[in-house]
């Protein structure tokens, strides 16, 4: 059986930031914070970074190569046809198509990576910790290690309330 998580509910993101600092200095790992908006202080202090942009660059590189090869194959190799006296290999004109396809495929690639990483999808059930966490409450979730003592749990709870948590509880 998984040990229950410690949940602290906050009213204000400044309090959350302070709580994060204290908990971090005590080497307590914070599993997650639920926030109604992207508070850059929380994001920065939790030190999380996304690798999604790297995926986008890969998608873009793929798009350039794929589009160029496809146009080259159709216009020069497979069915070379002269349009309005322009050479078959009309690179300046292709640049536009390659450009647009790069944007389109990079874009689609990025969205797909995002969906995969966040496992979000239409109709997915929301696992809410607090009904107002999408409105005005901040939820801090701390996972317990298996060997944590009751005293340490009480300590964390106290720390949370000291930093202004309006509610502290245990939850799965």
């Amino acid at each position: 059986m998984k040990t229950p998580n410690i949940i602290g509910i906050f009213d204000n993101d400044d309090q959350v930031v302070e709580a994060i600092h204290t908990l971090k200095s005590k080497n307590i790992k914070i599993a997650d914070v639920h926030a109604p908006f992207a508070s850059h202080h929380i994001l920065k202090d939790l030190g999380k970074e996304s690798r999604i942009p790297y995926g986008s660059v890969l998608a873009g590189a793929f798009a350039i190569v794929a589009t160029f090869s496809f146009i080259y194959w159709t216009s020069v190799i497979n069915y070379p046809i002269v349009f309005g006296g322009k050479p078959n290999f009309s690179f300046p004109a292709w640049v536009v198509v390659i450009y647009l396809m790069t944007i389109l495929l990079t874009f689609i690639g990025t969205v797909i990576i995002f969906q995969m990483r966040t496992k979000m999808n239409f109709g997915k059930k929301a696992e809410l910790m607090h009904i107002d966490s999408t409105e005005d409450k901040f939820v801090m979730i701390i996972e317990q290690d298996a060997d944590i003592t009751e005293k340490e749990v009480q300590n964390i709870k106290k720390m949370l309330s000291d930093h202004g948590a309006i509610e502290v509880r245990m939850d799965n």
Partner: peptide, 10 residues
């Protein structure tokens, strides 16, 4: 899409 505002997702 099951959004809860988790910081990881933010």
């Amino acid at each position: 899409m099951g959004w809860v505002g988790s910081v990881k997702n933010w």
